[in-house]
Design a protein around this nucleic acid. Structure first.
Length: 710
DNA sequence: ATAGGGTTAG
């Protein structure tokens, strides 16, 4: 459990859930009628074979293009089969006409050779000269005058050396044009490449492209280094179309990419999240006889990590093993990150051990990835063990790792450890407390409910001039809400908004959760905050309270609100709204909302069935939502008993054991709710967080209740 | 940055 948002919202809001659009499907037929009936709201015992059809499309804009759409630009050009080799290669080679050759080549197996530098005895003078120029602030004229004082004649080699050492890009370009004007020697490819490198550093894609066209116009050859520089510059400027365009241009002029250019392009598609295209290029490369190097595998790992695709990650590992490519540190780091995104902490741990066993020393990025994974997984022992190992082995740390350790402490509720670390960081000379550090501490005080310390930290932040961000604000709202310090809550909210914090859906969810357990004036004060952040939500709360609001209106307005809410705040919203309904004596409305939430896919797997056991999974629900779901389930089970339909041997409810300090409330609240109904569910002794009843117990309970009502 | 590709934080 945990963590996408262990920060602000109540614990019932802090359980991560899939943001997949396919979860937002519901049964279209069941929502058409406006007539209310229990049966219509019951989605708990539906046959699993009837897969619901989508009737909501909250996220149509996020749909990915189809595979064929994605592959179109490539299939039109580089990914063609042999016939097009004729067009691609300017000088046809015998190999491509040879019908026995099975596959076209998409890349050159030979890397472009680099010309070797000859030692330049004037290197020191020229470098000093370049440094002086780089650090100066001359006008163009003054710059020109200084150039005339170059300590050694601007021969080819001397000019190249200076060009290579100049920055920023404006000066590089100025010097480049100066050599060009003097016309002392022909400007070879390497001069353009060096100039482009500087331009890329300044993210000047336009300028780079102009240089490239100049090369074409003046007949200077563009080589693999030129193309890879252009492509990576386009990538850094987020001009992905341009990156692909230049890659295709390269083939059209008859130049084969080598593996450096090729993996640069792989990364272009990786950054676009186009897994199929990356794989297509990869397969084509393999078919051409390419043995990808660790850089290519890092790109592959990244793309699968971004997609959270565990099968893809396994594929990368298998390929490297089969091709006997030893992963390097970057590949391991990328794979570890990917394992985290795919939700595989155990595999990340064993991969890390494998990495250490292979003799590699983890760096700060490795450790950051792993600490983050353990924190999100609530693996306290592994996190603390790793922390110890870091210290005893003297493994490298940096400020991101320090802050990640703080966040991990927040995820695990390790207040003391965090305070010690925070204190160490405060005194340390090679790391400074920044807004991440403060926010992590606010997160901890928010989740353990330490309002005094949270307030002190908030005041310290104002004093040392560290701005409170939206997450810090959310943590404080949560903290002061729980402590019933509503005036402090309002103050923090107002100050934050004044200082430019833009409330997001999580902050709104947090305010909404405070509303759910506040009364009278306090609730109104919090609603007034929410009014500034999300007025529609406030209107909706008022609608829910108003008995005369029809179901159809609730349904439409709720759908519309959810559509405009970010994925990870939708369920928290629904949970809080259900709680509000229950608190305000609108129990049937709570059932309606739970039903709608289920239909809209906010509670996947709420009810699961095997032949032996039916289970109600309420771990992702707030107390009120869990109570509502339980009541709904009991109604359904009663109907099943009365109509003498079959039931499984075991019926169970899972509230979760509560590994986090604040998550124990659900099991307790559920237990007392079960008691209130005198329902035959017993808290399991061997399985923490489970409530279990046998079929016989349930049947006789339903029958005795029916008899009592008769 | 010494002519080109890949990895860290709510």
């Amino acid at each position: 459990m945990a963590a996408k948002f262990s920060t602000g919202l109540d614990i019932h809001c802090s359980i991560p859930y899939t943001s997949d659009t396919k979860l937002l499907y519901g049964s279209s037929s069941s929502t058409k009628s406006s007539r209310l009936s229990i049966k219509r709201f019951t989605v708990l015992c539906n046959s699993t074979s009837k897969s619901p059809k989508p009737n909501l499309d909250l996220d149509s804009s996020r749909k990915k293009p189809s595979l064929s759409e994605q592959l179109k630009p490539l299939s039109n050009t580089i990914l063609d089969d042999p016939p097009n080799q004729a067009r691609i290669l300017s000088k046809p080679k015998s190999t491509w006409v040879n019908p026995t050759r099975p596959k076209p080549s998409v890349l050159s197996l030979q890397r472009q050779k680099r010309s070797s530098y000859s030692y330049n005895p004037q290197i020191r003078d020229l470098k000093n000269f370049a440094r002086r120029l780089s650090e100066s602030h001359f006008s163009d004229d003054a710059f020109l005058a200084v150039l005339e004082d170059i300590p050694h004649p601007p021969t080819r080699d001397n000019a190249l050396l200076v060009l290579n050492s100049l920055r920023p890009w404006q000066k590089t370009l100025f010097f480049f044009n100066w050599i060009k004007t003097r016309n002392l020697f022909p400007l070879e490819t390497i001069f353009y490449n060096v100039a482009m490198k500087s331009l890329r550093f300044g993210r000047q894609f336009q300028q780079i492209e102009e240089l490239a066209f100049e090369m074409i116009d003046s007949g200077v050859e563009l080589d693999n280094i030129t193309y890879s520089t252009i492509i990576t510059c386009a990538k850094r400027c987020n001009l992905f179309d341009k990156a692909v365009e230049w890659f295709e241009r390269m083939y059209k002029t008859g130049l084969m990419p080598d593996e450096v250019t090729y993996s640069a392009v792989l990364d272009v598609y990786a950054q676009l999240g186009k897994v199929e295209e990356v794989m297509s290029l990869y397969e084509r490369g393999r078919a051409s006889g390419w043995t990808p190097d660790p850089v290519a595998f890092a790109v592959l790992a990244k793309v699968f990590g971004a997609a959270g695709d565990y099968d893809g990650i396994r594929f990368v590992l298998q390929e490297m093993k089969a091709l006997e490519v030893q992963p390097n540190l970057v590949v391991y780091n990328t794979l570890l990150e990917a394992m985290g995104k795919a939700g595989k902490p155990g595999l990340a741990r064993s991969l890390f051990e494998e990495m250490v066993d292979s003799g590699l020393t983890p760096d700060a990025k490795t450790l950051t990835a792993l600490i983050k994974i353990y924190g999100k997984a609530r693996w306290a022992r592994d996190a603390l063990d790793l922390w110890e190992r870091m210290k005893s082995n003297g493994w490298p740390m940096d400020f991101i790792l320090y802050n990640t350790l703080l966040s991990m402490c927040a995820d695990l509720g390790l207040e003391e450890e965090a305070e010690t670390l925070f204190h160490d960081m405060r005194r340390s000379e090679n790391c400074r407390l920044d807004s991440w550090s403060y926010t992590a501490m606010l997160n901890i005080y928010g989740s353990v409910g330490n309002a005094e310390k949270a307030m002190a930290l908030f005041e310290e932040m104002s004093k040392v001039g560290i701005e409170l961000n939206v997450m810090g604000c959310t943590c404080l709202v949560q903290c002061f809400g729980r402590a019933q310090r509503i005036d402090d809550l309002v103050k923090v909210f107002e100050v934050s908004v004044q200082r430019g914090v833009k409330p997001d859906d999580r902050l709104c969810g947090c305010l909404l959760s405070v509303v759910s357990y506040c009364k009278g004036d306090d609730a109104d004060k919090v609603l007034a905050c929410l009014q500034q952040a999300n007025p529609r939500l406030v209107t909706f709360v008022k609608m829910l309270e108003d008995e005369s609001t029809s179901y159809d209106i609730v349904k439409e307005e709720f759908r519309s609100i959810l559509t405009n809410t970010s994925d990870d705040a939708r369920r928290p919203f629904c949970n809080c709204l259900i709680d509000i309904c229950r608190k305000r004596n609108r129990a049937e409305r709570a059932h309606e909302l739970l039903y709608l939430g289920t239909v809209y896919g906010l509670y996947p797997g709420l009810h699961t069935k095997t032949p032996e056991e039916w289970r109600l999974n309420v771990r992702a629900l707030s107390v009120g939502a869990a109570q509502t779901a339980f009541e709904e389930w009991m109604r359904t089970l009663a109907k099943i008993v009365q109509s003498e339909e079959p039931l499984p041997e075991v019926l169970s409810a899972n509230t979760g054991a509560g590994t986090h300090k604040f998550s124990q409330g659900l099991a307790n609240a559920f237990a007392s709710h079960v008691e209130k109904f005198a329902a035959p569910f017993k808290q399991s002794e061997e399985k923490a967080g489970f409530f279990i009843a046998t079929r016989e117990d349930v049947v006789s309970w339903v029958q005795s209740k029916a008899a009592a009502n008769a």
